[in-house]
């Protein structure tokens, strides 16, 4: 009788405990949600302010958060106006020209080297790989200024070529990443292609490239975002303002229009320059976040 009772009590107790755990969990979740939401508001505040300000008349820039009168004048100015040295539409052409072909060629060339490192046996492979890793240690600040001189010798400084050509020779980081990815693909697949009489080129282009497409796409997206947002490279290597990429145009415009009346246009230009990135991020958000998680697990 007593034993039965105490068993009952135990059951009731554990039920109560579970119920209280549940309410505790719910309370914690609510608190965490409120904190995260408050943080998110702080994080989003600057970007929202940027969007609203670009639609305000300049008299309202700092006086109200929401625009009292919505106006698109700032956007008209940055695309067709006279205040802007290089109009934004031209910036879009320049930015696309200096990113899209670069990204595609760079990733394929890097994939070629990664294929050699991961799947081929050749003399000096390890030494070559160590040298390549060594070059990654050299900070960009060391080579950036002599690079200008090299580009001058090669005649790349007239126009956008200096930000295009060097990147078309591949990127060590991408080689490193793709090599890691290729290790995950069984050698039997490339061996089978070899046995079927496919040459190295056929093996690479019709077997390996399709297999690593997901990784290539991720690298393309990351490289696109990086190149689109790049500032120091174009600042050093693009001399004529007609070839300015969007970041250069935006900073140039901001420098020349520091007054209050320039704020909506500056914000509009900043906002417009980021639209392609935001679209790419929205479309490939899972891939982008996944690749960062991948590098975190490895690191």
């Amino acid at each position: 009788m007593e034993a039965e009772n105490s068993a009952k009590i135990a059951v009731v107790n554990s039920n109560q405990k579970q119920a209280s755990m549940k309410t505790r969990n719910r309370i914690i979740n609510t608190v965490v949600f409120i904190i995260l939401a408050a943080g998110a508001i702080v994080m989003m505040y600057p970007l929202v302010w940027m969007i609203f300000t670009s639609f305000k008349p300049y008299t309202d820039v700092y006086t109200t958060f929401f625009p009292r009168h919505w106006t698109g004048a700032a956007f008209k100015e940055i695309f067709t106006g006279e205040k802007i040295r290089t109009p934004m539409w031209r910036g879009f052409i320049n930015s696309i020209l200096t990113t899209v072909p670069v990204v595609i060629v760079q990733v394929i060339v890097s994939a070629m080297a990664a294929f050699a490192f991961a799947k081929l046996k050749f003399k000096g492979k390890n030494a070559l790989f160590m040298v390549m890793l060594g070059t990654m240690m050299i900070p960009f600040t060391v080579i950036m200024i002599p690079q200008v001189y090299v580009f001058k010798i090669l005649g790349l400084l007239n126009g956008p070529l200096a930000v295009i050509i060097p990147k078309m020779f591949g990127a060590v980081m991408t080689v490193f990443f793709l090599r890691q990815f290729l290790y995950g693909i069984p050698d039997s697949l490339t061996e089978a292609a070899k046995l079927d009489g496919a040459g190295y080129n056929r093996t690479f282009f019709s077997v390996v490239l399709p297999l690593i497409m997901p990784a290539l796409a991720t690298q393309c997206i990351l490289s696109f975002i990086g190149n689109w947002n790049d500032y120091l490279g174009p600042l050093l290597y693009i001399q004529g303002s007609e070839w300015y990429t969007l970041p250069l145009i935006v900073s140039d415009f901001a420098n020349n229009n520091g007054g209050l009346d320039g704020v909506p246009e500056t914000m509009a230009a900043s906002l417009v320059s980021m639209i392609p990135i935001i679209i790419v991020f929205a479309a490939f958000q899972k891939k982008i976040i996944g690749s960062i998680v991948f590098s975190a697990v490895k690191g």
Binding site: V109, S110, M112, A113, F115, A116, F117, L120, K121, F122, K123, G124, K125, L128, V131, M132, T135, I138, V142, I143, I145, P146, Q147, Y149, V150, P166, M168, F169, G170, V172, V175, Y200, F204
Partner: peptide
Amino acid sequence: KENYVGWLYCLPIIIGILIFTAFPIILS
């Protein structure tokens, strides 16, 4: 053959490193 192909596949990035990294390091 594989030796030759291996180096060939790495050639673009080797040239890139020589011209745009190694040479600037020496100049610097």
